[in-house]
Design a protein around this nucleic acid. Structure first.
Lengths: 235, 235
DNA sequence: CCGCCTCCTTAACCTGCATCAATCTAATTT
DNA sequence: AAATTAGATTGATGCAGGTTAAGGAGGCGG
């Protein structure tokens, strides 16, 4: 279950395995009924993801798919905003999102990114029904599979193996988040940036630098200096 | 399930409810067989804790107790050290512990404290069997209930409600850990120290200041100055 | 192809916290 | 009670990263 190389393990831990690049079927418009081939592809991303953790028969998998609600999200639009109840856990089929808060001074703080094959959502709000304090924003046109609270409970009742699945997601996410705290206490901004590039190369490709800076807990200006120094050194 | 006041919620989230102070039965020596009254008290701490999350019949509870191994730990001794496999999740009946790493520069970084009614352990090592990179040290003479990997699996099989119980612990811990990251990005050291005092008053009483500093990600000197400034202001 | 975003970079200055080194205090040990 | 040790405080100094303000560069709609 645990691959040995550090990079795969770290990614695995953070948000449960990044699957390979999609084969590239696209549809140009939103709200257009998806073609069969595309449905196939979308299902496969999730199926591949689930298979990392538990074994499902084909019939179980198609049953499980009925609990999800597909949703497309345009770049710069929000899945939830501060004050909403985050009624969904969202699995990313395609695209890229971030979750962040805005503090009392008006500054943004990125908690998480999610690309294809990752989950995103505000767990606290999802589980308690309290309004969230996060914004979840699409950084690119994205396709999600939503699981709402009720569907989540029905799914775990219908296929109890999913109890284990979600527990594993939680465990891995907790471990990664704890490591992030230790890293912020023990490493400099440069080291953390390099770690980020190494651990999440596919996110680094998709995401504006200022969001990475925010995730690392530094300003965009500081990240810019860091990048210049790294560039100068490697010449 | 979720109380409304911020402090209780925060404590709840961090490590699942601090129960009231023990009634104070002590035994002076280690490895002395515990008296019946004491066993009762110890069980009650755990029972109270579990009851926050799931409902158990008395017979289920006494069955569940058979999976735990009691253990006493003297002040300054370790439950696990770096390189060990952390085979246990430990429930704290009495006393106080911390988990920390030592980085490449030789500096300590506190990940977590645990007092009566809390859990501690290295989840990653516990679940994978890989050696841990943490030290778990008793800050006072402590009494623990250990649950090893096998017992954990048997327990969740025997009483499936415990699946839910452990999932809730994980969820709450993850939520609290995520909030800790956001707080470290958005708040000054003073604010974080005040938050700590408010959220975990009973830990602040038990724990040396330098460990609190380490938990907050600052040096003991910085914490000392913060405390002086606060004292001066409040005069 | 022009103007306007959005994002990134650069530079000058500032500050919060780290570092280093003493000193003080209160437990523990003998 | 004296000796030892762990923990907390204080002061002097330095630096990583924040702040502010001003460009620049690429992308996109008109």
């Amino acid at each position: 279950m645990w691959r040995s190389d550090a990079e795969t393990t770290a990614r695995h831990l953070q948000y449960q395995y990044e699957v390979g690049t999609a084969t590239g079927i696209r549809c140009g418009k939103y709200l257009v009924p998806r073609k069969k081939a595309e449905i196939q592809r979308l299902d496969n991303t999730l199926q591949h993801h689930i298979a990392q953790y538990i074994t499902l028969s084909n019939s179980e998998f198609s049953r499980c798919m009925t609990y999800f609600l597909p949703k497309k999200l345009r770049k710069r639009s929000f899945l939830v905003q501060e004050g909403d109840v985050c009624s969904y856990a969202a699995f990313v089929q395609k695209g890229c999102l971030r979750s962040y808060t805005i503090d009392s001074k008006g500054d943004e703080h990125v908690l998480q990114f999610a690309i294809e094959g990752w989950w995103i959502g505000d767990l606290y709000s999802f589980l308690t029904g309290e309004p969230t304090s996060y914004f979840i924003e699409a950084l690119e046109d994205s396709e999600l599979l939503l699981l709402d609270r009720k569907a989540y409970e029905q799914l775990t009742e219908d296929i109890p193996k999913f109890e284990r699945f979600f527990r594993l997601l939680l465990q891995n996410n907790l471990i990664a988040t704890q490591r992030r705290i230790i890293a912020e206490h023990s490493k400099s901004a440069v080291e953390r940036y390099l770690d980020f590039l190494k651990t999440y190369p596919s996110i680094a490709e998709h995401v504006p630098l200022r969001h990475i800076a925010s995730y690392l807990g530094i300003t965009p200006e500081a990240l810019s200096r860091i990048r210049r120094e790294l560039a100068e050194k490697s010449l």
